[in-house]
Amino acid sequence: MRAIWKGAVSFGLVNVPVRLFSATENHDVQFRQVHVKDGGRIKYQRVCSIDGEEVPYSDIAKGYETADGQMVVLTDEEMKSLPSRSSKEISIEKFVPSDQIDPLLFDRSYYLEPDKTGLKPYVLLRDALAKADRMALVTVSIRTRMTLAVLRVREGVIVLQTLLWSDEIRRPEFDYLSEDTHATDKELAMASSLVDSLAGDYEPDEFEDDYSEAVEALVSSKIEGGEVKETPAARPEETEVVDLLAALQRSVDKAKAAKSGGASTSEIRQDEAEEQPAQPAARQAAAQKGSSTGAPKKAASTQTTAKQTPAKKSTTKKAATKKAATKKAATKRKAS
């Protein structure tokens, strides 16, 4: 077991260092909600009931709904201002007769284990409780909120049981039980005879959770029969960063292909245009306007220059040939 709280029991002028352990555990069968088709687990999202948008945990606050349906939002700062206690002390207020604590008030149960240094005062408190046949009424703050609890002895160990507040116990309001109706003497005698015939001692191991055992047997039979779904790994959620990296990689690959003569520049631009997601009307119009005046014109100019380069070299060569012929003719006239 793992300790969930550490502190000390204040017993007059004596402090008993203790650790708190959960005394109970729930063995109810736990089912998962899954998709019948493939066995995938069902995910739940935090969605705002007004705008339908998913809300990140950082934007979620505590809200108090009034009786008329109004909502009062409480911030973290306001919650911190509320009275709370973080004391590591179990303070004994008084010792009360055991029969004065209605079992309906019991909430959660914990074992108290003493530290090695506090073994002697722990045993002293345990034996005093057992001899007095009383429960120690205490106040304790386990999770910031102060609550009432009792200490009692069970099998040589001090048990702490938290109590519900008195106003948390509902009062039964059954009008028909308020009538002056009682069983007859004959009926009561027969009922008493039935009670005597079923009298016995409580043996915890006498009863078992047949539902849990039946579920486990059913699951085992399905496993043995091969009725098990091989649930594939959940599909990872794509993010904008992953998409950006993929787009950059495609751009690099196409640029290399164009450089090696595998694809023309115009083909690359056409592919990139096809990969662009649909744009809103306003952005699309702006993009079209820019294409008629901006960067696309510069690209077209680049293409024109690239196409005209061979023609320019040819004109220069002709000019050089003509100049050489003129110079040769002039030399010939001068010689004659």
Rank of each mutant, 00 (worst) to 15 (best):
Arg171Thr: 06
Met135Thr: 00
Gly63Ala: 14
Leu148Arg: 00
Ile142Arg: 11
Thr162Lys: 09
Met135Asp: 04
Glu238Met: 13
Thr305Val: 15
Tyr202Gln: 01
Ile50Met: 11
Ala61Ile: 14
Lys322Trp: 00
Arg143Phe: 09
Val138Thr: 06
Ala330Ile: 07
Ile169Cys: 14
Arg283Tyr: 07
Glu25Pro: 02
Val150Phe: 02
Phe106Lys: 08
Ser86Tyr: 09
Pro97Trp: 00
Asp175Thr: 08
Glu213Asp: 10
Ile268Glu: 01
Ser141Arg: 03
Lys62Cys: 01
Glu237Cys: 03
Arg134Gly: 00
Ala278Cys: 02
Met190Pro: 08
Asp167Gly: 06
Ser314Lys: 12
Asp271Cys: 03
Lys80Glu: 01
Lys259Ser: 01
Leu194Val: 07
Lys328Ile: 10
Ser22His: 00
Tyr64Pro: 04
Glu78Leu: 12
Asp175Gly: 15
Glu173Thr: 14
Glu240Met: 06
Lys186Gly: 12
Pro232Trp: 07
Gly69Pro: 05
Arg171Cys: 05
Ala23Gln: 02
Leu244Ile: 12
Gln303Thr: 14
Tyr110Asn: 12
Leu13Pro: 07
Lys186Glu: 14
Tyr211Ser: 10
Thr147Gly: 03
Asp271Lys: 05
Thr305Pro: 04
Ala136Gln: 15
Thr147Ala: 05
Val252Asp: 09
Trp165Arg: 13
Arg154Glu: 06
Asp175Leu: 13
Ser251Tyr: 08
Ser291Val: 07
Asp38Trp: 08
Thr331Ser: 10
Glu78Thr: 14
Val123Asp: 11
Lys94Leu: 06
Pro277Thr: 10
Ser49Phe: 05
Ser178Tyr: 02
Gln288Leu: 15
Arg170Met: 08
Arg108Pro: 00
Val73Thr: 04
Lys131Arg: 12
Trp5Phe: 12
Glu237Thr: 12
Val138Gln: 03
Ser266Met: 13
Lys323Arg: 08
Pro296Cys: 05
Phe95Ser: 11
Leu244Met: 13
Glu93Val: 10
Gly200Cys: 10
Ala286Pro: 02
Lys43Phe: 11
Lys289Asp: 03
Cys48Pro: 05
Gly63Asn: 09
Asp209Leu: 06
Asn26Gly: 02
Gly294Leu: 15
Lys94Ile: 11
Lys334Glu: 01
Glu187Ser: 08
Ala199Asp: 12
Ser266His: 08
Pro114Ala: 07
Ser166Leu: 09
Leu160Gln: 04
Lys312Glu: 02
Glu113Thr: 13
Val47Ala: 03
Gly52Lys: 10
Ser81Leu: 08
